[in-house]
Design a protein around this nucleic acid. Structure first.
Lengths: 223, 223
DNA sequence: TTCTACCTTAACCCTCTGTTAACCATCCTT
DNA sequence: AAGGATGGTTAACAGAGGGTTAAGGTAGAA
């Protein structure tokens, strides 16, 4: 079930939206100002965020920027006033994924929400591949029921790979996922992949982490 | 300068859009029906395609599907009628990147165009020709169900050729596709084409990679 | 402080791949 | 028939890519 957060100071509008979404089977929490919204968003668990551009205490754009800066990549749909053309452009810069101009049709909102939720196929309380499970809530990884111990970097690597699974991630994408723009000079990634394999694959009969020569790495059941 | 293609049968609307876009510094070609649009789109060079959903001769959705199937991943913005909720969902399935409900504000169109132009669609997941299939997600190539092993350069060559298929690519175009501006001195391309043939054609009864003397190479079923 | 866990780095290995320069075949031109 | 242009085939070598190991370094915990 889709679970979204609406941050909106117009309480009438918020109420309308929430009721409509409920009818469509979408759960919708509500924050009435920017600070409250940030708090709620950080507690996480939402597949999509719905931000009003003009918010008391912390506007939607800054809120968006702060979230992105903190590594949150939940899809964000921005609600803008009628003539906010420049706002829209600024919105895309700040990391917004989509926007909707007020007043908008509620159907429109639903379609866009669902498209966004699908794009970064959320559901992320738990990531898994075959018998390997990563629980994001309590930060544990198990394979075939056995609890595994990962280093912080190992965790990030595995999380990225599982999110992408079964797609291939290039070395560059992985490096960016782990270190951002501050990538170490040498062959750190190689070593961390090696260590990750020791933990998640070596003790088990079938490997999940595969090298795709010339392209990168992918995690999936082999055929 | 942004260069887009509008496929729209309502000539009044088309005219309005084109004029507005010109004012915004966006070049806009026009096709009046689906078949014409497909033709123009295939000739390429557009950063974004703007398709009307309801077109004579070939509707926007099918047009979109055909383009995706042929390996074209130019971003597509679909123009839909007022109540086309289901159409929209179908649109996303078919490989549309965004849509706009008629009647729309021209400003709105411009913003969305510019947002789309910034990225490649990424909707194309598979390229194929006859029984040869290239899966861009998991980076595998199969022919007649058999998995083939390609070198990195072999992969780039085949990807370029399949995207162009059934058109011919000149040696120069291929070299640019593989090496960019840093093309090796000697006959590397010959050797790589030879090696590619060994993998994708030699083990099979019918050849797909053809030399077009004096022009280059093309991949297609022979007649 | 010492201990521990973890990250970075460099070195080594082996395999695979790309480049190169040959040589060969065919066709076209003169 | 000779010679050049175009395209196909082969093998040698150098280098890149990828896997493995071990030696410091750093930061936080005890």
């Amino acid at each position: 079930m889709l679970n979204v957060l609406l941050v909106e100071d117009d309480l009438d509008l918020a109420d309308t939206v929430i009721q409509y979404l409920e009818l469509e089977g979408i759960r919708c929490d509500h924050g009435a100002n920017g600070m409250a919204g940030l708090q709620l968003a950080k507690e996480g668990g939402y597949q999509v965020l719905l931000l009003d551009l003009n918010l008391p205490r912390l506007d939607g754009l800054s809120l968006c920027e702060q979230l992105r800066a903190s590594g949150d990549d939940t899809p964000i749909l921005m609600l803008t006033a009628r003539d906010g053309l420049n706002d829209k452009l600024a919105g895309f810069e700040a990391g917004t994924d989509d926007y909707l101009v007020k007043p908008f049709a509620l159907q429109e909102l639903v379609v866009r929400l669902e498209a966004l939720a699908r794009r970064r196929s959320g559901q992320v309380r738990k990531l898994s591949c075959a018998d390997l499970e990563m629980n994001l809530s309590d930060k544990t990884v198990t394979r075939n029921g056995v609890t595994l111990k990962l280093s912080p970097i190992g965790w990030k690597l595995l999380e990225s790979l599982l999110r992408a699974s079964p797609e291939v991630m290039s070395r560059q994408e992985l490096e960016e996922a782990v270190w951002g723009d501050d990538i170490p000079d040498s062959n750190s990634l190689k070593v961390h992949i090696f260590n990750l394999r020791k933990v998640i694959d070596a003790p088990f009969p079938r490997n999940l982490l595969h090298t795709i020569p010339g392209h990168g790495f992918a995690i999936h059941e082999d055929k």
